[in-house]
């Protein structure tokens, strides 16, 4: 599986100021560390970047590429900043993201084609968040049609069915998994991606990795191609790279209706089993879900 490291982000208290002050060292160190952790792409999230977006993206792309050769995911709501990043990017970049919002389509699709980049096809409709799996399917079909017409090859469209926080609406958490399971039928040949950490948004920091890892395992059942992740969660990286097959088997079995006897599982397996129950909507989330 392809992993996109989420750690270069303007909202970080350390790296945000470094980006704003054009302080290359911390950003480059972070890029190298993510590469060493086994990450395949680096997300460059510069936020809305209403002011100086183009210069900022251009600077970060160049700065990171001085020390690592990894492709970058250009992540901002400022379309011009993405274009500026594409112009200086070495190799095949990932545009994060194109949704059905007309201004994204109009400004970004031609740039994706021009630079031969890949794009995240975010299933965000003209009126916002999809309400269920049907809307996700509709948005996917529509978005892929528009992108294909513009000349984007199928394998360069990475569909993101949108992971949402466990504490907001479990049906949306399930719908993202369900959408993943039907994606290849609806839009054959496309790839897929999720912003994994969204699932644990609002959860105490020390507990977030458990939810992220288990949700990744669940999405892997349906052939998830890539995920935007915390590069420094070693266990998550191991799981994604196929080094924990017994955990995948456990989680996937539970998705098929198996109810393992918790008392017979190892501590690690029990963690995943309890978390799977929460993410399948069988047990209502609370911060004590692992210990209760």
């Amino acid at each position: 599986m392809i992993l996109v490291g989420e750690n270069i982000n303007i909202i970080s208290k350390t790296y945000g100021p470094a980006i704003r002050d054009r302080d290359a060292k911390p950003i480059q160190d972070l890029a190298v560390k993510q590469a060493e952790a086994g990450i395949d792409y680096l997300d460059i999230n510069i936020g809305p970047a209403r002011k100086h977006g183009e210069e900022t993206m251009e600077w970060v792309v160049k700065t990171v590429h001085e020390v690592v050769d990894l492709p970058l995911s250009l992540d901002t709501t400022n379309a011009n900043a993405i274009k500026a990043g594409l112009r200086v990017h070495k190799g095949k970049a990932l545009v994060n993201s194109v949704s059905l919002q007309p201004e994204r389509i109009e400004h970004l699709l031609p740039a994706v084609v021009e630079h031969g980049a890949s794009m995240i096809g975010l299933l965000w409709g003209r009126e916002g968040m999809p309400r269920d799996t049907d809307e996700r399917a509709t948005f996917a079909a529509e978005l892929v049609m528009v992108a294909a017409e513009a000349g984007v090859p199928m394998e360069d469209i990475w569909i993101d069915p949108i992971a949402t926080p466990v504490g907001v609406d479990i049906n949306q958490v399930l719908s993202c998994v369900e959408a993943m399971s039907i994606l290849q039928e609806i839009t054959p040949g496309t790839r897929s991606i999720v912003g994994l950490s969204n699932v644990s948004n609002g959860v105490p920091n020390e507990l977030r990795p458990y939810l992220n890892r288990t949700y990744l395992a669940m999405l892997m059942k349906h052939g998830l191609y890539s995920a935007i992740v915390d590069a420094f969660d070693d266990e998550l990286v191991a799981l994604a790279k196929g080094k924990m097959p017994e955990i995948l088997e456990l989680v996937h079995g539970m998705m098929d209706g198996e109810e393992p006897d918790l008392s017979k599982l190892s501590d690690k397996e029990r963690e995943y089993a309890k978390t799977t129950r929460v993410l399948l909507g069988k047990e209502l989330y609370s911060d004590s879900w692992l210990t209760n």
């Binding site: 209502l284 989330y285 609370s286 911060d287 004590s288």
Partner: peptide, 12 residues
């Protein structure tokens, strides 16, 4: 007005 927090407080 939050079901997850309600459950958590009852656990606590």
């Amino acid at each position: 007005i939050d079901i997850n927090l309600a459950k958590q407080l009852n656990i606590l």
